[in-house]
Amino acid sequence: LSYVFCFIRHIAGLNNGPFLIREQLKLVKGLGPKSFQQCAGFIRINPETVRRCASGLTSSNGEFCLQMQKTAGKKKVKGSGSTSNQFNPLDQTCIHPESYSIALRFLSQIAGSLDQMGSAALRQSIESSVKSRGLEVLAKSLDTTPETLQLIVDGLTQPPDISTDNLDDFKREIVSMNDLHDGMVLTGRVTNTALFGAFVDIGVGRSGLIPKRFITLEKLPVDQRRRSLALGPGERVEVQVMNVDLQRNRITLDLIRVLK
């Protein structure tokens, strides 16, 4: 966990601008193949960033977007050849790049496609396949583990939109970490999920973490209890502040319930 936080802090401190694909992480100076392998699944590409850069919108990051589009397919990365400059919808999910080929084979098995990600139709196809054949049998046919396949299922069925711009989710009088106190109940949106918990934007400029031990089955809707990560980006949640560490700039939250 501490390694992941150090990795994220390292990237944030390098002023790299918005990434359009996960492969571009390999272009960050000082981040080798091992770092990419360990942390790529944690970094999600915001589809809004991709849309803005792909459409050529001018902004403070417009020049960077253009540069990344031009160089992503040209720069060589030690031990991994060159990066690809193609936008990949799987980069917006919890699926690790090492499992992309498995995800594509799974989609082929159920006659699905990447442009169906997060749709009701794909969810129905996946649920039907899992129900008829069983997760373990499907995993064996794809030469992977049931745990990995469940993570792939989660990634393919969760809506990829991770926008958290709706200010109605936040209390107007709570604008910074200094306004928080233990026991406070707030609403927010999940910004990212990992095996150790979920990060939630509560409107104070810093996402709080709901540790995995606080994401229990009784707090989840029935249709989410089989997910490997339980919560997905963009979901509205009600949380309680458990601890505010101003010195380390960390907020620990407890999940109360998932809001519709």
Rank of each mutant, 00 (worst) to 15 (best):
41 G>M: 08
3 Y>A: 14
246 L>W: 03
219 K>N: 04
155 G>V: 14
95 I>V: 13
188 G>Q: 02
100 Y>I: 00
26 K>A: 07
116 Q>E: 15
17 G>M: 05
42 F>M: 13
155 G>I: 09
25 L>T: 02
189 R>I: 06
135 L>V: 11
31 L>W: 08
160 P>W: 07
169 D>P: 00
223 D>F: 05
42 F>S: 15
193 T>K: 00
205 G>K: 09
101 S>W: 09
169 D>V: 00
30 G>S: 04
143 D>P: 00
258 V>E: 01
50 V>C: 06
133 R>W: 12
247 Q>R: 03
82 S>A: 06
38 Q>P: 06
123 R>K: 08
125 S>Q: 09
170 F>R: 07
26 K>W: 11
214 F>V: 02
85 N>Q: 12
103 A>C: 07
21 I>E: 13
121 A>Y: 15
190 V>K: 03
189 R>S: 12
180 L>M: 08
8 I>L: 11
155 G>Y: 11
104 L>G: 03
247 Q>T: 10
247 Q>I: 08
154 D>K: 05
34 K>L: 11
48 E>N: 05
259 L>A: 01
142 L>P: 02
180 L>I: 12
98 E>T: 05
36 F>K: 02
96 H>N: 08
10 H>N: 13
150 Q>K: 13
138 L>W: 01
12 A>T: 09
151 L>I: 12
62 G>V: 08
195 L>T: 11
97 P>D: 14
